[in-house]
């Protein structure tokens, strides 16, 4: 049996009388990928926040690499998440932000990896600019560059394709495939079926907080892709 990166059992999140996530279960093995899909308000981001320990579940359990997501620095050295917009450091350029993350993650900021990342994500010419001056799409590219600039056992990405133009989305998908090929795990939420298809990862469709039941010969009829190897999912009733 392969080691489990993320194990979610009977996850339930309630805000007052509003049930945001209901009975979500899935296992993500180490080196595997899983994409959460569903309409706005389906609870995708909340599940990702529970996995990263930023939201406490009302019921159920979440374990990341066999332990609850405790939000310690040791946890964040293994997990990289883009489930919230960061506040960029004033007075630092785009390139310096990425280099800072790479250096803090134990890498060498001058080994060419930062250069390559900025190049493929179309940020190379903006390296001396500040994040405040970037467009929203460019800021999303910067966030992804920072997330990918350091080693991570698990990437948790909330709609990584959002605000990106059509040309750059396959590039991002390629970078995420590289992460998987290197043995990393990936948990993401997405609204773009084409992006998920390029990524070729299993999907779990959420509907109003709970997973849609699986049909006999495949996933819920959402057209986003097959539930394949790499993740086992199950859900309660809608």
């Amino acid at each position: 049996m392969s080691e489990i990166a993320v194990a979610v059992v009977g996850l339930r999140v309630t805000y007052g009388s509003l049930s945001v996530v209901r009975d979500v279960d899935f296992d993500l093995p180490v080196g595997g990928a899983l994409c959460l899909v569903g309409e706005n308000g389906a609870g995708k981001s909340t599940v990702l926040r529970c996995v990263t320990g930023l939201v406490e579940p009302t019921a159920g359990s979440v374990r990341v690499f066999g332990a609850p997501p405790d939000g310690t620095a040791a946890f964040w050295r293994r997990v990289v998440a883009t489930v919230e917009q960061p506040g960029w450091y004033a007075g630092l350029t785009v390139r310096e932000h990425v280099e800072l993350v790479r250096l803090a993650g134990g890498g060498d900021p001058a080994d060419g990896r930062v250069y390559d990342l900025l190049k493929v994500l179309g940020l190379h010419d903006l390296g001396d600019g500040t994040p405040d001056r970037l467009s929203s799409g460019e800021r999303q590219r910067l966030l992804l560059a920072a997330a990918l600039a350091r080693p991570a056992d698990l990437l948790v990405l909330d709609e990584p394709e959002q605000r990106l133009d059509a040309a750059i989305r396959p590039v991002v998908a390629g970078l995420l495939r590289e992460h998987l090929a290197g043995g990393g795990s990936l948990l993401l939420a997405s609204h773009d079926p084409a992006f998920v298809a390029v990524l070729g990862c299993p999907v779990l469709k959420l509907h109003s907080g709970s997973p849609l039941p699986q049909t006999a010969d495949g996933p819920a009829p959402d057209g986003t892709g097959p539930v394949g190897d790499g993740a086992s999912v199950s859900g309660g009733p809608v």
Binding site: W76, A81, A104
Partner: peptide, 10 residues
């Protein structure tokens, strides 16, 4: 916004 601090792992 502690998101960057988490990325830095400090």
């Amino acid at each position: 916004h502690p998101a960057l601090l988490r990325l830095l792992g400090l």
